[in-house]
Each structure stands twice: as structure tokens, then as C-alpha cells.
Design a protein around this nucleic acid. Structure first.
Lengths: 248, 248
DNA sequence: CTCTGTAATTGGTATTACCAATACTCCATA
DNA sequence: TATGGAGTATTGGTAATACCAATTACAGAG
């Protein structure tokens, strides 16, 4: 047992909590801009340094995106245990997709055998949100709800380690929110359909079909990212695309 | 090769990379103190503000611990998320093993197709260390070298995301180093043999065999942990054990 | 040797200033 | 009216400095 309780919270931790409260406040829409660092410093009664450090933590968790000269934007209300953050260069989206292709299908298959009816209902709600964001061309909401769908799916395994792995691979930022504007209608339909098929197969407890649909979903995502965002597929994804004949 | 990526790295990101390099440098022992913020600022040719913000990111990743008035201490070379370090309860080793069973076999299979000869040579050295620790009944060395073996194997995929996932599942502590004292000689042989077989199959570039051996290895680990450390197998592992007839 | 109090070290915070990237305004022009 | 571009205001990025509080190191007293 450590000392814990007696320790007073530093101003930065206090600022971080206030920022978290602000982030979780539903009145602030995803993608909207937070107050400026100078404003936050004044509001919280602290200095800009302190605010900046606190923002770094939120940024590291993928909850906000800080853009020089522009401002600080809300990206997610939940932390994404991402390795996809500043430093070590930009994330290699090719590698992220490939990693998803390796780990998500088996996770989804296992989840199919264990997920509860209540969790499935939650996933259906996520799917509706996802669909809405997709057709409303809201990139931030799309990323948020797509991540939530995948995390909820992984939580169906009832294995916190697998849920953590899935959360780690659901990046706080991705080129996906850029391409949502450029997608054709049939591409939107296909993307939504992939998720819907996964959910349908889960309700039938068809683990093998879930695995197949998840593979297809990731391959299609790779295809769309290649087409609209110049993200090349890894050799594995390229060959798998041909093997499973995922084109449209 | 993403969208332009012409964006210049900020000084803070550059500092973060240098700190990461420092953290990963094996010469710096776990628990030791890093240079002071002022020293780092001077070394990296930047200001204390910048260093502090970078340290915040490392702290958020759980890689360093910053103690007021004392200094900054190295806690982990790999980033880990919240689920791994909740101090209230020990990790659920059942769940950890199950997660390993889900993600390691496909990772190992992919690694088999990409790992370089040099990396294989490194793995052989790790295997020798592992064997030595196993038969010398040195639990700390065993844990360290077994983790290193698995991480090195995952790095063979040439995919940093998968390497990170693997690192996340190689815990710093496990019941394994307790049971090394109680293992029978034939159990030691079997455990070593599983790793050796994986490595042999990788050298033959036999991905399917590598996958099978990895599954067998994890099932055997589960068996030994159940036998000597009262770690029950998850339903999945129990059924898989019977299906693949892993007993000894 | 232990204890103790002082001084040095180190992280926490505030303030100020300036730079660079971005966003905005507004007027000249087609 | 629409458009485009120059100039300005805003915003994050960085630096430098000073001071505070917690911790540590050390010298001197017992």
C-alpha cells in the first residue's frame, strides 16, 4: 500500500480533470474546437505551461488534436490507448491496418461465442450512430463510433486483455475521417453493410462467418484508404484482397 | 508514404523521440533516474517547457514516473495502458493466457514470412538464455528472456503495431517465475522444446507449423500454470487442449 | 555513530516575450 | 457580384527567467 491519500493534487492534474470534464460534456460536439490555451489558463486560474502539459496528456490519449496556429479540437470522449500519437513520426497506417487484419478476426470470432444479448444491443446502437455519421459526412463522429463499435465487439470476449489490445489498435486519429467526404454513395453503403453483416452473423452466433466478415471489412477499409488517401496496402493485405476477391 | 508528411517535426516531438531512445537503451536500468529536466533541456538543445511536455507523454504511457523534488525514474521500456497496472487486483492470468492464445499464433505465422536471418540469429541467442534460466531455476531471468523471445518474434513481422501488442501481453510479472522451482525435468524439457520447435519451423519458413507450435506452447504453459500455480484454464483453452491433445 | 538542521537539488508554476502557422478581414479587381 | 490576394489578428510552439515546494545531500552537533 502506498501513501496515496494524503498527496495533494497538482495544478496540472486539476487542470487535466477539468479538461476531462469538458471533453466528456456532451454539449461539446465531436470535432469542435476547445477554448484557446490562453483562455483555458485564465478560466482554470493557472498558467499556459500547465494547460499545455495537460493537453499533451489528452493528446497522447487521442482525445484531442492540437493544430498549430488553429486550435485544439475534440476528437474522442474516451481514451484510446494509442501508440498512434506524436513522436515516432506519423503512424504507419499500412501497418495499423495489417495489425487489425491479424488480430481483429480471431477476436471477433471469440466474441461471437461469448457476447451477451445486452452487449449486442449496445453494438446495434453503435451501428446506428456509425451509419448516421457515415452518411452525414461527420468524420469525427464516424471515427468515434467506429472505434466504439470495435471496442464493444472486443469487450464481448469478456477478456480485458483482448479488449485492451483492440482499444490500442483503434487509433484516435486516422485518415479515415478525411476520406469520408470523398466516398461515393455505394462505398458508404458497402462500409455500413460490412458492419451490419458482422452484427447479423454475431446474432446468429456464426463465429466463422463473423471472422470472414471482419476480414472483408478490413480489406475494404484498406481499399478505400488506398483509393482516397494514398495509403498503400501491405503485401499481406494486397494478396488477401485478391484471395478473398474484395474489390468494390 | 502518407499524405505528403512534409510536416516538420516540432522540437517537442524530437525531444520525445530522443527520450524514447534513452528509455529503450538497455544501458539504463529499470528504476534508475533519468537526467534532470534542466540537464535534458540543455542536452537536447531545447527549453525546459518542451522537455516537461514530452515527459508528460512518457508518464501518460507509464514509461516513467516523475516525482517532485526527486527526479524522473524509468519504469518501463514499453508503453502499457491502464488495464495492465491496476494495483488493486492481480492480473487475471487466465485471461492473459487466453489473449496470448488468440493473438500470438497469427503474429508468429506472419513473422515467419518476414523475419530476417539476423533476427532469427537474435532469437537463437534469446533461446539459449531462456534455456539457461530455465534449468538454472532463475525465475527473473526466465521471465525476462521469455518475454524477449516473444517480443523479438513479434518484431519479425516488421509491424510496430503488432510488436507493441505482443509487448503488451508480455507482462513484467507472471506466476511463471514462481513455478520454475517446482517444474519436473521433463516439463522443463517440454517447455524448452516448444520454443526450440518454433524457432526451427521459422528457419524452415513453415508458417503453419509455427502457428501450430505456438498454440501448443501456450496450451502447455496453461497446463503447467494450472498444475503448479492454480491458474485455471479458460473454457477456450480447456477445449483447445483436448482438441490438440496437449497434455504432457 | 546517530541525529538534526541547513543548503543544494529538482520538479511545479507563473510570467513574459517572440516566432510561425493558421484564420480572418477587407479591399481591389475581373 | 464574385473572386482573389494582401495585410492583420489569432493561436499554438518555443525560449528564458524567476520563484516556490518537496526532496535530498551533507556538514556539524550530540
Amino acid at each position: 500500500m502506498q501513501t496515496s491519500s494524503a498527496r495533494t493534487m497538482t495544478k496540472e492534474e486539476h487542470s487535466l480533470e477539468q479538461l476531462l470534464a469538458m471533453v466528456r460534456d456532451e454539449r461539446l460536439e465531436l470535432g469542435s474546437r476547445l477554448p484557446t490555451e490562453r483562455t483555458l489558463a485564465e478560466e482554470f486560474g493557472t498558467s499556459r505551461n500547465t494547460i499545455r502539459s495537460a493537453l499533451r496528456v489528452l493528446e497522447a490519449r487521442g482525445m484531442v488534436e492540437v493544430r498549430p496556429g488553429s486550435g485544439c479540437y475534440l476528437r474522442s470522449r474516451e481514451p484510446h490507448n494509442g501508440l498512434c500519437l506524436r513522436g515516432s513520426g506519423n503512424p504507419d497506417w499500412s501497418a495499423v491496418l495489417e495489425a487489425c487484419y491479424v488480430v481483429f478476426p480471431p477476436i471477433a470470432a471469440l466474441s461471437t461465442e461469448r457476447i451477451t444479448a445486452g452487449q449486442i444491443a449496445t453494438l446495434e446502437a453503435r451501428l446506428m450512430d456509425l451509419s448516421k455519421a457515415l452518411f452525414a459526412r461527420n468524420p469525427d463522429a464516424l471515427r468515434e463510433h467506429m472505434s466504439a463499435f470495435l471496442r464493444g465487439l472486443a469487450e464481448g470476449t469478456d477478456n480485458p486483455m483482448l479488449a485492451a489490445v483492440a482499444a490500442q489498435l483503434c487509433p484516435g486519429t486516422s485518415p479515415l475521417h478525411e476520406i469520408v467526404f470523398f466516398l461515393q454513395d455505394y462505398e458508404r453503403e458497402a462500409l455500413f453493410g460490412d458492419h451490419a453483416k458482422i452484427l447479423q452473423a454475431m446474432k446468429r452466433r456464426d463465429a466463422q462467418e463473423v471472422r470472414r466478415c471482419m476480414e472483408e471489412r478490413i480489406l475494404r477499409l484498406s481499399l478505400l484508404l488506398e483509393r482516397h488517401a494514398d495509403v498503400p496496402p501491405s503485401p499481406l493485405l494486397r494478396s488477401e484482397r485478391e484471395r478473398l476477391e474484395v474489390f468494390a
